[in-house]
Design a protein around this nucleic acid. Structure first.
Length: 434
DNA sequence: TGAAATGTTGGGGCG
DNA sequence: ACGCCCCAACATTTC
């Protein structure tokens, strides 16, 4: 039957109706557009029912749905295995084209590859776009065509390219091109989830003017809270970047780290489970369950570490400086495999992003590309003196600090330091490379 | 995007 | 005035 074909815009980690590259192209495809989101069971089944990130995604879907309804359309929400869902969708609807923004994680690359094959088999066009980064996987390469593995030259090249072609946000999508449809979206409980007590704060870019002076002082709470929004695409990277000028170099640098680690993950997917540098494979981690437990709960007896872990446990956020201190403490002082810490952060952080989390954990452990050298060991006391001299941050998150309830340090810094140095040195002496 | 250990220098106390 | 010691302050090396 001469059914009118439609375009489908499949939202994933780009939960916004502004400055959205795939959406922009879908709306100009000439076919009416149906917006789609799939709750992916393969990801959701790992998460607790009150996971704040699922809640956040859900709220944003609700808001997108409301806006689409005003335009006479609606958001189609499905849950299940994406490939299976797409088999059903292609049978139910006359789909001409599918538009997505690219994702670069190993799982999502494989998922998209399979969906694309399925669609192609059914003569449906599949268009994917760069959207979540300024420069993606193969746009910033060394002159010999290989990817950068050192940040500074990567950054220099990035800035050079950026100066040549600064991308502008695409504004003003015409929502009238959406398909007239009346889907209703499922309740959160139908997905097996419920509201979370934790909240993803709105982001605040007004702090960036003083970012360079304040960023290392966790008590100042001069953080932008941008990271979860970049993670789920509730703001586009182009819009953020367009707010910066040449006084915001240090802040921009952090955004470049984000893209650096994304391209590292793309080109070196083994980092997900393996050390970036194989010569560290022989580290004899102690991996004591009880030590790990104390770290997770924030009862190590080192106030800076404990305050950080409490902030994480209570809010799903942790200040960047403190992430370095807590991560370093786990890897070096406790000699616990960075993967344990990485997976705990992945579970707890509202802004969890595989590429950054993995990259920064490997940085802290000294096993990563351009990582901190293994002998660079943070002294948690010194870090506190330098970056929280008035103990404001510590007292905020660790009310028992200074009282008799405060635990004694679980390890002696001096001893733990020399133990870490010896363990790493030994690993490098007789490398296990596999 | 460290910190500790070791080395060097120079001023002051003191015989 | 001189040499010696001490040690803080800074610099360099090492992990």
């Amino acid at each position: 039957m001469g059914e009118t074909k439609i375009s489908v815009c499949w939202f994933r980690r780009d939960l916004r109706l502004e400055d959205n590259t795939a959406l922009y192209h879908a709306l100009r495809s000439g076919l009416p557009v149906q917006a789609l989101f799939i709750f992916d069971w393969n990801i959701l089944e790992e998460l607790p029912p009150d996971d704040a990130r699922v809640d956040f995604i859900y709220r944003n879907l609700q808001s997108i749905h409301q806006r689409l309804r005003k335009a006479g359309s609606s958001l189609l929400v499905r849950h299940g295995d994406p490939l299976a869902i797409w088999k059903i969708l292609t049978a139910e609807h006359a789909i001409g084209s599918v538009f997505v923004n690219r994702d670069y994680e190993p799982y999502t690359l494989e998922r998209d590859r399979q969906v694309e094959m399925l669609l192609r088999h059914k003569n449906i066009r599949f268009f994917s776009f760069k959207d979540q980064v300024i420069f993606e996987k193969d746009e910033i390469l060394k002159n010999d065509g290989t990817p950068y593995t050192v940040f500074t030259p990567y950054k220099n090249r990035w800035l050079q390219e950026f100066g040549a072609t600064p991308p502008r946000p695409r504004e003003g999508h015409d929502l009238r091109a959406f398909l007239k449809s009346g889907h209703t979206i499922p309740e959160l409980s139908e997905l097996g989830f419920r509201e979370s007590r934790r909240e993803v704060k709105e982001y605040d870019l007004s702090v960036i003017d003083r970012y360079e002076e304040t960023r290392d002082f966790p008590a100042a709470d001069a953080t932008s809270y941008l990271s979860p929004h970049l993670r789920f695409g509730t703001v586009g990277i182009r819009r953020v970047i367009s707010r910066l000028d040449d006084t915001h170099g240090v802040f921009l640098s952090e955004l470049i780290w984000r893209e650096f680690f994304m391209q590292i993950l793309f080109h070196f997917p083994h980092v997900v489970s393996q050390n970036f540098r194989a010569r560290y494979n022989g580290i004899a981690w102690r991996n004591r369950e009880d030590d790990f437990e104390r770290w997770c709960r924030g009862t190590t007896g080192y106030p800076m570490v404990d305050a950080g872990m409490r902030q994480l446990n209570q809010t799903g956020c942790m200040h960047n400086r403190v992430r370095m201190v807590t991560a370093g403490f786990l890897c070096k002082h406790l000699l616990i495999d960075w993967r344990w810490g990485e997976s705990y952060f992945a579970r707890m952080l509202l802004d969890y992003e595989l590429s950054s989390n993995n990259g920064n954990w490997q940085w802290a452990a000294g096993t990563g590309c351009d990582a901190a050298p293994y002998f660079r060991i943070f002294n948690p006391e010194e870090q506190m003196k330098k970056f929280d001299p008035e103990l404001e941050y510590v007292k905020k998150w660790l009310p028992e600090h200074g009282s008799s309830d405060a635990p004694a340090p679980m390890v002696d810094h001096r001893e733990a330091r020399s133990r870490a140095l010896e363990t790493y040195r030994k690993a490098l002496e007789d490398p296990i490379v596999f």
